[in-house]
């Protein structure tokens, strides 16, 4: 069953003439890992907000078409109920720390307190999520004393503990260093492996290629590509729309023109495919 069903979604922020999203239609199956790519301003963040109901509930603006998340029509469902279904994690780790709590453990409990979960039920849920996101060691530290990557995992845990059916991530690693990025990506991958549906807007194409089951490319608020990573990430449209491509694709494409890459072979998006392709031709 599709957990997300979007039909002809068009969205304008208040007082703008250009739509931020234009006539989007797609579905996501339960358990899928979908990456959303696109240049800055292409509509990635807005799509994340639309999937979680912040557009239009929080930002106002004009919306037409329909967004169904786990059967709920986002336009007619209050934000607080959508939060139970779709969790949102975004770029800046510092701004996702609530400020209401003094330790990581309490920070993760914050969402559960707001939902009215009985305290006895909280502890096992928090313990499980902390282990899953690898932050058990920081339980008693201040969330503000952590590195960006650690903070982002706290933000992730704080959302996951509320047990949403769908995790929406808006460039979760854009402000992080390589170690922090890897920590966060690995955590997200672990969640996905457990069956969580993940939608992630992301610039880092090498990670997208490694993780995603499917890639949606946006340009000027419209979907230009929607398919498996190997297909989307090697499309010439990505260069045309300033999204870029991995160096593996670039180099193989040029090599192909010089007969240094097998002519019938698909272009690579990850290092293993690149290695295999070049090796095949060396013989």
């Amino acid at each position: 069953m599709a957990i997300i069903a979007i039909q002809n979604l068009t969205y304008h922020y208040p007082q703008t003439t250009q739509p931020a999203l234009q006539d989007l239609s797609f579905q996501v199956e339960e358990g899928e890992f979908v990456a959303v790519i696109g240049a800055n301003g292409a509509g990635k963040s807005t799509l994340c907000y639309a999937l979680t109901g912040f557009a239009p509930h929080f930002f106002r603006g004009e919306m037409s078409g329909q967004v169904l998340v786990a059967g709920l029509d986002t336009r007619h469902t209050p934000l607080e109920e959508l939060m139970l279904v779709a969790g949102l994690v975004f770029q800046n780790p510092g701004n996702q720390i609530s400020g209401a709590k003094f330790t990581v453990y309490e920070e993760i409990a914050f969402g559960l307190e707001n939902l009215g979960v009985p305290p006895a039920e909280m502890r096992p849920r928090i313990d499980r999520i902390m282990a899953l996101t690898g932050i058990t060691d920081f339980a008693n530290r201040s969330p503000y004393a952590l590195s960006g990557g650690q903070q982002q995992r706290v933000a992730l845990a704080s959302i996951l503990v509320m047990e949403p059916k769908l995790l929406v991530l808006d460039e979760p690693t854009s402000q992080l260093d390589p170690i922090g990025s890897r920590e966060v990506f690995e955590t997200i991958r672990a969640m996905s492996k457990q069956g969580m549906t993940v939608i992630m807007a992301e610039h880092k194409l090498e990670w997208v290629a490694t993780f995603a089951d499917r890639v949606i490319a946006l340009a000027n608020g419209e979907i230009i590509l929607n398919g498996p990573p190997a297909e989307v990430l090697t499309s010439p449209l990505l260069i045309e729309h300033h999204i870029g491509q991995t160096r593996y694709t670039t180099v193989a494409k040029q090599a192909q023109a010089e007969q240094l890459w097998p002519p019938e072979r698909a272009l690579p998006v990850v290092i293993d495919e690149a290695e295999a392709g070049f090796r095949a031709y060396k013989k």
Binding site: R247, Y248, V251, Q254, E258, L260, I271, E275, F278, R279
Partner: peptide
């Protein structure tokens, strides 16, 4: 990315740009 790929393929010297990767490949 290309340095890692070059090392796996054991092509020539250390490469790190599309140009010098292709040069080494040629």
């Amino acid at each position: 990315q290309l340095t890692r790929l070059g090392q796996r393929l054991a092509i020539g010297p250390v490469v790190y740009t599309v140009e010098n990767f292709l040069a080494a490949l040629r």
